[in-house]
Computed example of a mutant assay.
Amino acid sequence: MSLAEDAALAARVVRDAGSLAHRMRGEGLSLRNKTSISDVVTEADHAAEELVVRALAAARPGDGVLGEEGAAHDGTSGRTWVIDPVDGTYNFVAGLDWWCSAIALTDGDDLVLGAVHHPATGRTYVGGPGLPTTVDGVPVGPLADRPLAESCLTTYLHPPEYDGEVGAAFSRMVGGAATLRMLGSASMDGTAVASGALHVRCQHSLPPWDELPAAALVLGAGGAVQRIDAAGVTWSAAGAPTAVADVARALVG
């Protein structure tokens, strides 16, 4: 299979997953908390993940899968599809529009591509290190470089972590930004960074389904990604190259 064929498949499955979740939200949902009041899951998360897993099993039977809601299969090809059926579930449940369905493809340790579908606008983003990022097939254009001091940083830190070493590192980072947003969906934040609406994203302890789809889009737009060990956790930054470097310096202190 070609990179173009993988990209088309990724775009299709996230559109289908996002459309299913959007329809289920309109019909009413039950939910439960996972780790906290802001970490929730619904039957739409599970149904959308099952849809993606079935589609991938039919189209790429040798590939593995890793899903936020429990899907896990190693496969035989060395490739793995990383699935986030509903990213931004708190927003999804609350009736806010900043949520999406997202997927990434890895080949061993290499990130191949990411795709994100935003049901509120109907837009689908696809890109990767060797695949210029597009929205509905239109290139987003090269990402403009800028320092953190001239950037809008999108991030999140769970309030109980504001104190201590993690909170201190976070304060150093956000203190260097021109402005700050906490919007509640890591992959949607990545679409905004890749398209230039926001400029850099950074959060700690991101699981692969929250980190990789956005990282692929940012790389496909000419941005940079970096993992930074600071305050006993690993932070994932993606965005304008100079801003990413500034974030890394601020976190380490």
Rank of each mutant, 00 (worst) to 15 (best):
P119E: 12
N91T: 13
G122N: 12
L96E: 15
A57W: 04
G70E: 06
A120E: 13
L56P: 02
L51R: 12
D63T: 03
W81Y: 13
G67K: 01
H46M: 09
I83T: 01
G70R: 06
V53N: 00
T76Q: 04
L113K: 00
A48M: 10
S77P: 05
E69T: 08
G108N: 08
L96G: 09
E50H: 11
G114A: 13
V86L: 04
T89N: 06
G64E: 08
G62C: 11
G108R: 02
P61R: 08
L105M: 06
Y90V: 13
W99Q: 06
P85E: 07
A104E: 04
H118M: 13
L51V: 11
W81H: 12
L105W: 00
E68R: 01
V82M: 00
T106S: 12
G62I: 11
I103Y: 00
R60K: 10
D87Q: 11
G78W: 06
D45G: 11
W81V: 12
T89I: 09
L111P: 02
I83K: 00
V112M: 06
L56C: 03
E49S: 08
Y90T: 15
R79C: 09
F92C: 07
A55G: 10
L96F: 15
S101R: 02
S77G: 09
L113E: 02
G64I: 04
A120V: 09
P61H: 12
D87I: 03
I83M: 01
